[in-house]
Design a protein around this nucleic acid. Structure first.
Lengths: 209, 209
DNA sequence: GTATTATTTGAGGATGGACTCAAATTCGTC
DNA sequence: GACGAATTTGAGTCCATCCTCAAATAATAC
C-alpha cells in the first residue's frame, strides 16, 4: 500500500524489504561519496545511481528528488555529530582545556569517514537553508555543552560564541587536511596551536570555581 | 580586425571603444553582485546580462564563456588584495602584533565592497582550480610579508604557515558578518580575540631581534 | 557622406540533467 | 506454484542554461 506515512512528496516510498533497505544504503553511500568529491550541484542523479550499481528509476523510487537525498544525508550527519558530542561531554569533566581543545579540533577530522559529504552539503546553496541551520545549531550546542562541562562557571551565551569559533576552526582544519597545500605544510599544526591557546585562555578562569 | 591578441578563445574580444569598455565594467559589476548573492553555479549568463542592462549577445562578445567572467573577476580581486597587502606592509613596522592582528582580521571585511564575489568564486567547483590557487598564494604571500615586517626575525616558512591560518580566520569573520547569526552574536568578537591572542603569542619572540 | 569597424540584438541550436512511468522482474506468502 | 506486492528497468519528456551567429545599428575615420 505504500502509505507514504510521514514525510516526502507523492512519489517517495520507504523500502519495505531487506533488498530495498540495502539499496537505500548503497544509494546514500554513493551520494555521500560523490557530493564530497564534486559538491552537491555538480553531482547528478544518474551518477549517484550508477555508482550505487542501480538504475535511475530505483533512485527515484526511494527519493522524490535530489534535495531529499541531501536532506537525508544531513539528518544522518546531524545524528552522528550529536552522538559524538554527547560522548565527549561525558569525558570533558576530566580534561584540562588544552587537551579538550586538541580533542575538539580533531573531532571533525576523526569523524570524516562518517560525515564525508557534510561540508559539501553545508556549502551548497539551495532554497531550503533550514536544515543547514539546524545542523549548525546542533553542532554549536553540542560543543558548547562540552565546554561547560569542562569549565562549569562558563556563561551559556559565551559558551555558544566560543563554540561557534571552535566549530569554524574545526572546519578549517578539515579543509587544510583535505586539499594538498604544498606551500603551507605547517599550517595545520599552527591552527591547532591557535585553538589550544584560545581555549586555554578562555576556559581557564572558569575551571573549578 | 579584432586580432584577439593575448588571451581568450576564438570568440573573445577586447572592447575597443569607450562604450565597450563601460559595458564590460557593467557586466563585471553585475556578475560580481549576482555571484556574491547566489554563488557561481546558480548565476546564469542571462541574469548577468539582464542586470547589466545588456543582452546576452553583448555578454558573449566580451567573454567567451562563463568561466572567463569568473576568471576576470578573480584576477581583479587578486590585484586589489596585492595592493592592500603592499600598503599594509608599509605600515606594519610601526604596529605591535595585537594591533596588526586586528587590522589584518578586519581586512577582508573592509575590502568586501571591492571583492564582493571573491568568496563565492573561491568556493565554486570548476575544472580550473589553478586561478583559485594563485589567488590563495598571493593572499598568503602578502600577509606573510606584512607579518615579517612586523616581526623581522620570523622564519619565512613559518610566516607562510601563520599567514595561512590568519587568512582562514579572516574568511570566517567575513562569513560570520555576512549571514545573520542570531544565536551567536558575540562570536565575531571572540574570533578577533582568538586572532589577537594567537598573533601576539607567535610574533612576540621575533620583535626587535 | 561614405566606408569601415565596433557594438548590439535576440531568435534558435545544442546539451545536459532532473524527473516520469508503464512494463518487466523478483520476492514473500499461502 | 500462484498470487499480490515490492522492486527494477530505461527509454523518454521536459526544461533550463550555455553558447552561436547573421543581420541591424551605432560610432569613427577620411
Amino acid at each position: 500500500m505504500d502509505s507514504n506515512s510521514s514525510r516526502g512528496k507523492r512519489t517517495s516510498l520507504q523500502p519495505l524489504r531487506a533488498a530495498g533497505r540495502q539499496r537505500v544504503e548503497e544509494l546514500l553511500e554513493a551520494a555521500s561519496d560523490l557530493m564530497a568529491e564534486r559538491g552537491y550541484e555538480a553531482t547528478t542523479m544518474a551518477e549517484i545511481a550508477a555508482r550505487a550499481g542501480a538504475k535511475i528509476g530505483s533512485l527515484y523510487r526511494f527519493f522524490p528528488n535530489k534535495e531529499a537525498v541531501a536532506d537525508t544525508l544531513v539528518q544522518r550527519h546531524i545524528a552522528v555529530l550529536e552522538d559524538e558530542c554527547a560522548a565527549l561531554a561525558k569525558r570533558a569533566a576530566t580534561l584540562p582545556p588544552d587537551v579538550l581543545a586538541d580533542v575538539l579540533i580533531e573531532l571533525l577530522v576523526t569523524l570524516h569517514p562518517r560525515v564525508k559529504s557534510l561540508s559539501a552539503l553545508m556549502e551548497a546553496r539551495t532554497d531550503k537553508m533550514e536544515i543547514r541551520d539546524r545542523a549548525r545549531g546542533h553542532a554549536i550546542a553540542g560543543i558548547a555543552a562540552a565546554l561547560r562541562v569542562c569549565a562549569p562557571g562558563l556563561d551559556e551565551a559565551l559558551a555558544r560564541d566560543i563554540a561557534a569559533v571552535v566549530l569554524n576552526t574545526m572546519k578549517i582544519l578539515r579543509g587544510m587536511l583535505a586539499k594538498d597545500a604544498p606551500a603551507t605544510l605547517g599550517a595545520p599544526e599552527e591552527l591547532r596551536r591557535m585553538n589550544r591557546l584560545y581555549l586555554s585562555d578562555r576556559l581557564a578562569p572558569f575551571r573549578n570555581i
